[in-house]
Nucleic acid binder design. Sequence first.
DNA 1: TCAATCGGTTTCGTTTTGCAACTGGATTGA
DNA 2: TCAATCCAGTTGCAAAACGAAACCGATTGA
Lengths: 148, 148
Amino acid sequence: MSPRKALDDEPCPVARSVDVIGDRWSLLILRDAFDGMRRFGDFQRSLGVARNILSDRLRKLVEAGILETRAASDGTAYQEYVLTIKGEGLFPVVVALRQWGERQLFARGERHSELIEKSTGQPIPFMSPKAGDGAELAPAETEVRKLR
Amino acid sequence: MSPRKALDDEPCPVARSVDVIGDRWSLLILRDAFDGMRRFGDFQRSLGVARNILSDRLRKLVEAGILETRAASDGTAYQEYVLTIKGEGLFPVVVALRQWGERQLFARGERHSELIEKSTGQPIPFMSPKAGDGAELAPAETEVRKLR
DNA sequence: TCAATCGGTTTCGTTTTGCAACTGGATTGA
DNA sequence: TCAATCCAGTTGCAAAACGAAACCGATTGA
């Protein structure tokens, strides 16, 4: 089999993003990271992922500049994985996945976890692409201007 | 090896979403679908994916209710894969990936394709989670209220 | 009518994944 | 203090997913 082709020279930003975080475990690691999780063992227990896979994904996320390692904040000799500024920029991606899941993947009345605003305790309003004037944009009202 | 564990009974909406669309090819198929692509051969040429893999992903997306098949609109005997309402709900996910990629994965001055509003030709403003009062929300200002 | 195209499926070898066992340093506790 | 345990991985192996190419019947275009 030929190895998976890298998409890091594609002119499409979606392709490049998917190349970096477009897999199951990376996305779930990010979810937990946004939830404040930092330690290898915490990720491992939360995700139930094999240690070698977790190790590999954390390394790749660090290489990609999405996470960085630093000394543990609890004084132990271990290290933590924390989101960089670049990594924090992925918040809309995780929120979009969460909101679609909430709307489309739960039966009516089925309970699920929920993203809330800390200061008010209120759920976060649905996030969607808006035009310059603030109007909600349907996919058909947009198009990709391709490079040429 | 044990088979990949399904996440479709997780209480976390992110986990369920990732279980359905959290892989390289599904996300790229969706990108193209939002770009108006409908035919098997068009996806195949656009993505450069192996036919068997494309076939598998399209089937899974149809099973998940994200795409549906219908008779081709060009009068031929073939079929098309088009986004359902449920699938259209993934627009924010693709837009979020695109906008993060645009900001973080291109060198300054490096050209990339761009999502624009058809009616004005203007680029789509950056999309981000907002509080009830419209204020932009940083990750630290939110938290996940877990089920119990 | 006959070659080319379409939309797959099959086969086969490679890569990736998952699990369990192992490692070696840090920490805890008796 | 020193054994037991925890932590954060790494290694080896088997199974699953993947990629390329060959194959296939139906459809289309010339």
